[in-house]
């Protein structure tokens, strides 16, 4: 599938900021499921700083903007060919040992509810089957509902609520997988979705679970599936914050207003 992506993030400040520093992970992952044709990242008035590939295989770019400035836009655009690899992250180069992804963080910490959910899968043929069943269990326990959770909601809270968005599903799946001793991580990216005719937020997140013999395998508990050619993978981490495509700090006393627009469209090959 050939996808065209436009991703614009605009930061508005009620008074000028002195400067801004960002760390961006907005470049598609290099693996068998993705082949990038054109890709550009631009920060208005910004200076591109260091660019490097980290141990997780993510391409990171630092950007700085010298103030005073009242509005900054991060624009990403590009075209990419995607292929269904049944969720398997095949042909991806990374150096971090999977066991480093067994550590919990605040949003992925297990409580009694998550522990019970993790324990609810009692018969699994192997680790892959276990991962599939855990993903299904999370999808069933948390109904997809917009607006009931926020960015700091933990997996335990979302499960107790029984509702949430893709971030909550990913956190919950990571928590239960780690509880079953499967290394798991958070993945941020884009999703091209046309199903049911409704508009979906094209910025998306899911989880990856390490399965011995296969490597990292993606699971999208929110959509009850594994990532396929509709998914574009950007970056990974222990949780949403650790995998955030944009991290930044603005110097100044201003209040920030954020506007995000993401368009993912299929185009002719």
């Amino acid at each position: 599938m050939r996808l065209q992506i436009l991703h614009e993030t605009v930061y508005g400040y009620d008074q000028p900021i002195r400067n801004l520093v960002q760390s961006l992970r907005l470049t598609p992952t290099v693996f068998e499921g993705q082949k990038t044709h054109e890709w550009s990242i631009d920060v208005t008035g910004g200076m591109r700083g260091p660019g490097f590939r980290d141990g997780a295989g993510d391409w990171i770019e630092g950007w700085t903007v010298r103030g005073p400035v009242e509005e900054i836009a991060v624009r990403v655009s590009g075209r990419i060919d995607t292929r269904d690899t049944a969720g398997v992250l095949r042909g991806h180069r990374e150096q971090i040992h999977p066991l480093a992804y067994l550590r919990d963080t605040k949003p992925t910490r297990v409580d009694d509810g998550l522990r019970a959910l993790a324990g609810s899968v009692t018969s699994a043929a192997d680790h892959l089957d276990l991962a599939h069943q855990l993903s299904a269990a999370v999808g069933a326990a948390i109904r997809y509902t917009n607006g009931v959770t926020e960015s700091l909601t933990t997996a335990a809270e979302a499960l107790a609520l029984g509702e949430g968005v893709c971030q909550d599903h990913a956190h919950a799946l990571i928590a239960v997988a780690r509880e079953r001793d499967l290394p798991a991580r958070y993945v941020s990216g884009y999703l091209h979705s046309t199903e049911d005719g409704q508009s979906h937020d094209a910025a998306h997140a899911w989880a990856e679970i390490f399965v011995e013999g296969l490597g990292w395998v993606g699971f999208d508990a929110a959509n009850h599936c594994c990532p396929d050619e509709r998914y574009v993978r950007l970056a990974s981490g222990l949780d949403a914050q650790d995998a955030a495509p944009i991290r930044g700090v603005a110097m100044g006393m201003a209040t920030e207003k954020l506007a995000v627009a993401v368009r993912v469209e299929e185009i002719e090959q």
Binding site: S23, G49, P50, F52, D54, I60, G62, V249
Partner: peptide, 11 residues
């Protein structure tokens, strides 16, 4: 802010 990106790229 940004120190680790500079560090990791050898700056």
């Amino acid at each position: 802010p940004g120190l680790m990106d500079v560090y990791r790229s050898g700056g």
